[in-house]
């Protein structure tokens, strides 16, 4: 599904990713963990195509295509979804309108008809129930006045409606209380399928109690310092990041 090879990325002249290599096969859930400043969010943003990141070396292949050559909207239409760490508020742009525009953009890309308005709303309502979201949130501006937890739930709602092939969730657990965390995890789990891959970028192991990963990678100073199964996350929780950073140094 996704193949990252020797990726080097600079931000404001400073090298954040320093030769990152990672492969994520179809149907797998990978957790990328690491201390603050290790490059986790940089990785997520680079995959989604956010401007301001200078790729100095390496490659990213998504379903056999050069992902880095695609514009952000093309990546989205190809099925890459980024769940933002800090979803931006866009007052004046209606939440449901954005959803519909996004779905139609992807459908058009695949040569499909625009979605039927009634069917679409039925689908969205169903997903909202799953995310325990008030229906009034649909008619509000995108993330406008949402609490931190509501924003994260709205991200997952979009993911559920868009049904991406590859979802990268950047610190989706941060700022969530335990109930909201369960709702979000439940939402994510419904999307797990052999045809879909997930990357969970997270600082804490807590999320992984609810979304159990197939593989765990620890990112230190812009490279994967250690990989393992889900027990690696538990060991990290117990011993702290110093354990890995000490080794890596």
């Amino acid at each position: 599904m996704l193949k990252i090879d020797n990726l080097h990325v600079k931000v404001d002249g400073k090298e954040i990713l320093q030769g990152l290599t990672l492969e994520i096969p179809s149907g797998e859930v990978h957790a990328v963990m690491g201390p603050n400043g290790s490059g986790k969010s940089t990785l997520a943003n680079v995959l989604a195509g956010r401007p301001g990141y200078e790729i100095t070396a390496g490659s990213v292949t998504f379903q056999g295509r050069d992902l880095l050559a695609l514009a952000p909207e093309e990546r989205a239409r190809e099925g890459v979804f980024l769940g933002f760490q800090y979803p931006v508020e866009i007052p004046g742009v209606n939440n449901v309108y954005l959803l519909k525009a996004a779905v139609n953009a992807a459908r058009k890309h695949r040569g499909l008809e625009e979605v039927d308005a009634f069917e679409f709303l039925t689908l969205v309502r169903e997903k909202m129930r799953l995310m325990r979201m008030e229906e009034s949130m649909l008619s509000r501006g995108v993330n406008e006045g949402f609490s931190g937890g509501e924003k994260k739930r709205n991200e997952i709602l979009q993911m559920l409606v868009l049904e991406p092939r590859l979802a990268i969730l950047d610190e989706t657990d941060s700022g969530l209380d335990i109930d909201a965390l369960k709702i979000v995890a439940n939402g994510v789990n419904t999307l797990r399928s052999p045809a879909r891959s997930l990357v969970l970028v997270t600082h804490y192991q807590r999320l992984l109690d609810y979304i159990v990963p197939d593989h765990v990678h620890v990112l230190v100073k812009g490279r994967i310092a250690r990989s393992g199964d889900k027990s690696l996350a538990l060991e990290l929780e117990r011993r702290g990041y110093d354990w890995v950073t000490g080794e890596a140094a």
């Binding site: 195509g49 514009a71 909207e73 866009i90 004046g92 954005l98 996004a102 890309h109 868009l162």
Partner: peptide
């Protein structure tokens, strides 16, 4: 905001128009 809309698959033209529209909404 622009990047957010692009990351959801909207074309740059539509995203810009949408944001202009939203700008007048106040």
């Amino acid at each position: 905001m622009l990047f957010y809309l692009l990351s959801r698959g909207l074309s740059p033209e539509v995203a810009q128009r949408l944001l202009k529209w939203a700008f007048l909404e106040d």
